[in-house]
Every structure is written in C-alpha cells, then in structure tokens.
Measured scan of single mutants.
Amino acid sequence: MQIFVKTLTGKTITLEVEPSDTIENVKAKIQDKEGIPPDQQRLIFAGKQLEDGRTLSDYNIQKESTSHLVLR
C-alpha cells in the first residue's frame, strides 16, 4: 500500500509499505529515499509519535494515510 510522509519543508514522500511493516522499516525506507538517518527521524501520526518496534497496523495507518516527519 502507499502512504505519504510530509516533511517540515512541505515536501511529500510517497512510500510503498505493508501494514505489517514496523516503524523502523518505514524509517529505513525514508533513509533510502531521502538520506536521513533513522535516528534523526521522528514520525508523527494523528498527533502521536510512532515508536520503532510497533507496526503501521498498530497505529491504524491505512493506505494513503499521511504522517509527518520531524527531524531531531
């Protein structure tokens, strides 16, 4: 499924993911596309910070959901 990640600069990154993917996996995909190390990434969805060990389905992130990327 596709999800979108919006950066603070207003850029939207499109990612191909599975509901069973962990947040860690998603951060690795963002690193592949954008070159941002996962330890600098914070992903926010529905006002919550997403934890590495959880999956997209844990957070009820469905296709075409948009989460926000904040850099630390």
Rank of each mutant, 00 (worst) to 15 (best):
residue 3 I to P: 00
residue 3 I to M: 05
residue 4 F to Y: 13
residue 6 K to I: 13
residue 6 K to P: 02
residue 7 T to H: 05
residue 8 L to W: 15
residue 9 T to V: 08
residue 9 T to H: 13
residue 9 T to R: 11
residue 11 K to F: 08
residue 11 K to I: 08
residue 11 K to M: 09
residue 11 K to V: 08
residue 11 K to T: 08
residue 12 T to F: 10
residue 12 T to W: 12
residue 12 T to L: 14
residue 12 T to E: 06
residue 13 I to V: 05
residue 14 T to Y: 08
residue 15 L to M: 04
residue 15 L to H: 00
residue 15 L to A: 01
residue 16 E to K: 08
residue 16 E to A: 09
residue 17 V to K: 00
residue 17 V to F: 03
residue 18 E to H: 14
residue 18 E to G: 07
residue 18 E to S: 14
residue 18 E to L: 15
residue 18 E to D: 12
residue 19 P to H: 06
residue 19 P to Y: 07
residue 19 P to G: 07
residue 19 P to F: 06
residue 20 S to M: 11
residue 20 S to V: 05
residue 20 S to W: 14
residue 21 D to Q: 04
residue 21 D to Y: 05
residue 21 D to T: 11
residue 24 E to D: 08
residue 24 E to T: 09
residue 25 N to K: 14
residue 25 N to S: 15
residue 25 N to I: 14
residue 27 K to W: 03
residue 27 K to F: 03
residue 28 A to L: 15
residue 28 A to K: 14
residue 28 A to E: 09
residue 29 K to D: 02
residue 29 K to Q: 08
residue 29 K to T: 03
residue 29 K to E: 02
residue 30 I to F: 02
residue 31 Q to R: 13
residue 33 K to F: 08
residue 34 E to N: 08
residue 36 I to M: 05
residue 36 I to C: 05
residue 36 I to V: 08
residue 36 I to Y: 12
residue 37 P to I: 04
residue 37 P to Q: 06
residue 37 P to L: 06
residue 38 P to Y: 11
residue 38 P to D: 03
residue 39 D to K: 11
residue 39 D to W: 13
residue 40 Q to A: 09
residue 40 Q to T: 08
residue 40 Q to S: 09
residue 40 Q to M: 11
residue 41 Q to N: 03
residue 41 Q to T: 05
residue 41 Q to H: 04
residue 42 R to G: 06
residue 43 L to D: 00
residue 43 L to V: 03
residue 46 A to H: 14
residue 46 A to F: 09
residue 46 A to D: 14
residue 47 G to N: 06
residue 47 G to R: 03
residue 47 G to E: 05
residue 47 G to T: 04
residue 47 G to L: 03
residue 48 K to E: 12
residue 48 K to C: 10
residue 49 Q to S: 09
residue 49 Q to A: 11
residue 50 L to R: 00
residue 51 E to F: 06
residue 52 D to K: 04
residue 52 D to C: 06
residue 52 D to F: 04
residue 53 G to F: 10
residue 53 G to N: 12
residue 53 G to D: 11
residue 54 R to S: 07
residue 54 R to L: 10
residue 55 T to V: 06
residue 56 L to Y: 00
residue 56 L to A: 01
residue 58 D to L: 02
residue 58 D to K: 02
residue 58 D to C: 03
residue 59 Y to R: 01
residue 59 Y to V: 03
residue 60 N to S: 08
residue 60 N to K: 07
residue 61 I to E: 01
residue 61 I to S: 01
residue 61 I to M: 07
residue 62 Q to R: 11
residue 63 K to T: 11
residue 63 K to V: 09
residue 64 E to W: 13
residue 64 E to T: 09
residue 64 E to C: 10
residue 65 S to E: 07
residue 65 S to A: 09
residue 65 S to T: 12
residue 66 T to N: 10
residue 67 S to K: 11
residue 69 L to W: 03
residue 69 L to M: 07
residue 69 L to G: 02
residue 70 V to N: 05
residue 70 V to A: 06
residue 70 V to M: 11
residue 71 L to Q: 08
residue 71 L to R: 07
